[in-house]
Design a protein around this nucleic acid. Structure first.
Lengths: 141, 141
DNA sequence: CTCAATCATCAGGAATCCTGAGTATCAGAG
DNA sequence: CTCTGATACTCAGGATTCCTGATGATTGAG
């Protein structure tokens, strides 16, 4: 009857992520890329030349699933794969100009979404939030 | 080539959620409930008597999707639906004893997962983290 | 060299979530 | 009261996602 227990932090994290993903999906719909595909593109933007397997580990999905996703992005011309000179079984993935253009196209709206999420946060709180999130992520292996 | 830009806070939130969901799925697999189903059960634990439509809004999915999920939980005997005396088109959803037992069964492991996520956090930081997450969620409408 | 591990991909299927359509109920305007 | 629009729920069908299992090529350790 009484619910003195506050929601768990696990739940709070999920809620924030659900809310942002819903907004992101809506925002991305016209481009025909999903939030997960967009996320993979932003990862490549920061760390160009990753392999499919690395992306899979980064996104906590199986290599097979990431292969599907990467295949879809390649067919749309947003990324390109090329053999890794250092290891013949790896393929390095790079953003194409189209991929970069798509990221640039949505960057303002995504930034606006982040600003909206941080409404009422002081600069100090934003820094703290980032720090706590990164530490939480690191603590989970 | 240089990637001076730090990952966005949107991305950091997603990473924490991905990491916890992966762990939660693994932890829940023996019971045959998904992380999303488990989450719905915890919501009902705190707010018994919600309708399917309310749960859908809470989880940012369509009412149809939530209807599937609720149907699955009902077939497994973890929840029960009954007509709402106050409004004949609503059905209120309650946890069954089996549903409560399933939550109790996993509560320790889930708590352990949360503790693991908060490794190195002071009590004050946990409070701040909760506050920031709740404010971020609220700011997203 | 041998063998276990890794990368990538194909095939098939299960699960999830969507759109569209339809029924029932409710609340408010006229 | 009646009409209208909104809401709750459900069924049907399909698209997508992501999984398991299997295969082939490559690598590196013993």
């Amino acid at each position: 009857m009484t619910d003195a227990a506050p929601p768990s932090l696990l739940y709070s994290v999920k809620q924030v992520e659900l809310a942002t993903r819903a907004r992101l999906d809506e925002l991305l719909r016209p481009s025909g890329v999903t939030a997960l595909q967009y996320t993979a593109l932003t990862v490549l933007e920061r760390r160009d030349g990753m392999s499919s397997a690395e992306l899979a580990r980064n996104s906590f999905v199986t290599p097979q699933s990431m292969s599907d996703l990467v295949g879809a992005l390649e067919r749309r011309g947003l990324i390109a794969r090329s053999p890794d000179p250092a290891s013949r079984r790896r393929h390095v993935i790079s953003l194409t100009d189209d991929g970069r253009a798509l990221l640039a196209l949505h960057a303002p709206a995504v930034q606006h979404l982040e600003d909206e999420m941080l409404t009422g946060f002081t600069a100090r709180e934003r820094t703290v939030f980032r720090d706590l999130l990164n530490r939480a992520r690191a603590a989970l292996g």
